[in-house]
C-alpha cells in the first residue's frame, strides 16, 4: 500500500522549526541542569567557586558526615512510611469510592467532581488550610472533638512527633484521593460486565466475584497508581514545608528527602553545591530506579 505521507518529503526546515522551540526550552532548562547537577557532584566547591575534582568524595561525605549522615536515613524512612501509608489509606479508600460509585451511579458526576476538587489546590495552601484547622487552641477540629465529648482526643496534632507523620499522610490523602478514584473508575468501566455476571451465575457471592474476577483485571490500574504514588511521595516538599517548616516539624518527625535537599542546597555550608548535587543525584536514582523497577514488576504480573 502506498504510504499516504511521503515522510522524507517534509523539508528539514519545517521539522526544525516545529521541534526546536520545545527542544531548546526543555533541553536547556530541564535536561542540561540535571546533567550539570550530576557533574557538579564530582567537585568540591568553595562557595560558588568550583575547586578540585573529588570523584565520589561528596557522596561519601553526604552519607557519613554529621548531620546529613544521620538525617538521610531518617528522611528516607519517612518517605517510605509516607508511601506505604498513602498506598494503604489513600489508594484503598480511592478504590472503595470508585467501586461504590460504579455500583451506585446516582449523582456520579457530582461526587466525582467533589472528591477530586482538592486535587487542584496548591499543596502549600492545603498545608496552610489544615494547619489552621488543626491548630491546638483555636482550630475547629479540636473544638469539634471537644464539643462531641472527645476532649481526650484533642491535641496539638502537628506539634507532637507521634501524630505529625500520620496527619501528613491523611492530609495528603485528602488532597489526592480523586486521582486513584478516577483511574479505578475508568478501569472498572473498561471491564466487561459479562465476566462478573458469569461468576454470579456460578454461585459466587458479590464480594467473591469482585475479588476473584474484577480485582485481577484492575491490576494495570493498580500498577499505574502505585508508580504515580511512589513518585509523588518521594517528591513531596510543599505540603511538609507548610505543615512543619523547612526542618520537618517537631523533632524532624516529618523530615523528608525533599526538605533535606532544600536545606543542603540553600541553607548549607561552603561546599553546599557539591553536597547538594550529590544528594540530588542519589534522590534521583532512587526515584527513577524504583519507578522503573515497579513498572517492570507490575507489567509482568499483568501479563500472567
Amino acid at each position: 500500500m502506498r504510504r499516504r505521507y511521503r515522510p522524507d518529503r517534509t523539508p528539514l526546515g519545517w521539522i526544525a522549526g516545529f521541534t526546536l522551540p520545545a527542544l531548546v526550552l526543555y533541553g536547556l532548562l530541564i535536561v542540561v541542569p540535571l546533567v550539570t547537577a550530576f557533574y557538579y557532584g564530582f567537585f568540591r566547591w568553595e562557595g560558588t567557586k568550583q575547586a578540585e575534582f573529588t570523584g565520589l568524595g561528596n557522596y561519601q561525605e553526604v552519607l557519613t558526615r554529621y548531620p546529613l549522615g544521620e538525617q538521610i536515613p531518617v528522611a528516607l524512612w519517612h518517605n517510605v512510611l509516607f508511601f506505604v501509608g498513602t498506598m494503604a489509606i489513600q489508594n484503598t479508600i480511592g478504590l472503595g469510592l470508585a467501586v461504590m460509585l460504579y455500583r451506585n451511579p446516582r449523582f456520579k458526576r457530582f461526587f466525582q467532581a467533589v472528591f477530586s476538587l482538592p486535587y487542584l489546590i496548591s499543596p502549600l495552601i492545603v498545608g496552610y488550610i489544615w494547619s489552621l484547622l488543626l491548630s491546638p487552641s483555636f482550630g475547629p477540629i479540636n473544638h469539634i472533638l471537644e464539643s462531641v465529648g472527645l476532649e481526650s482526643w484533642a491535641r496539638p496534632w502537628l506539634g507532637e512527633p507521634d501524630t505529625a507523620l500520620p496527619v501528613l499522610i491523611l492530609v495528603n490523602a485528602w488532597q489526592w484521593i480523586g486521582g486513584p478514584m478516577l483511574i479505578f473508575l475508568a478501569a472498572l468501566g473498561g471491564i466487561p460486565r459479562e465476566l462478573e455476571e458469569a461468576a454470579s451465575l456460578d454461585g459466587a457471592s458479590a464480594a467473591r466475584a469482585f475479588w476473584s474476577v474484577r480485582f485481577p483485571l484492575l491490576m494495570p490500574a493498580v500498577g499505574v497508581i502505585t508508580v504515580l504514588t511512589f513518585i509523588g511521595c518521594f517528591n513531596i516538599f510543599d505540603l511538609v514545608y507548610a505543615l512543619g517548616g523547612s526542618d520537618g516539624g517537631p523533632g524532624g518527625a516529618m523530615d523528608v528527602l525533599g526538605l533535606l535537599y532544600y536545606r543542603t542546597a540553600f541553607e548549607g555550608g561552603a561546599n553546599a553545591i557539591g553536597e547538594s548535587s550529590a544528594l540530588a543525584m542519589m534522590i534521583f536514582l532512587v526515584i527513577f530506579g524504583v519507578s522503573i523497577a515497579l513498572e517492570r514488576v507490575l507489567r509482568r504480573r499483568e501479563v500472567s
Binding site: 541542569p33 540535571l34 550539570t36 547537577a37 525533599g258 540530588a280
Partner: peptide, 8 residues
C-alpha cells in the same frame, strides 16, 4: 524530578 536540577 526536574526540581533536582534547580541549583544549576
Amino acid at each position: 524530578p526536574a526540581k533536582l536540577g534547580l541549583l544549576p
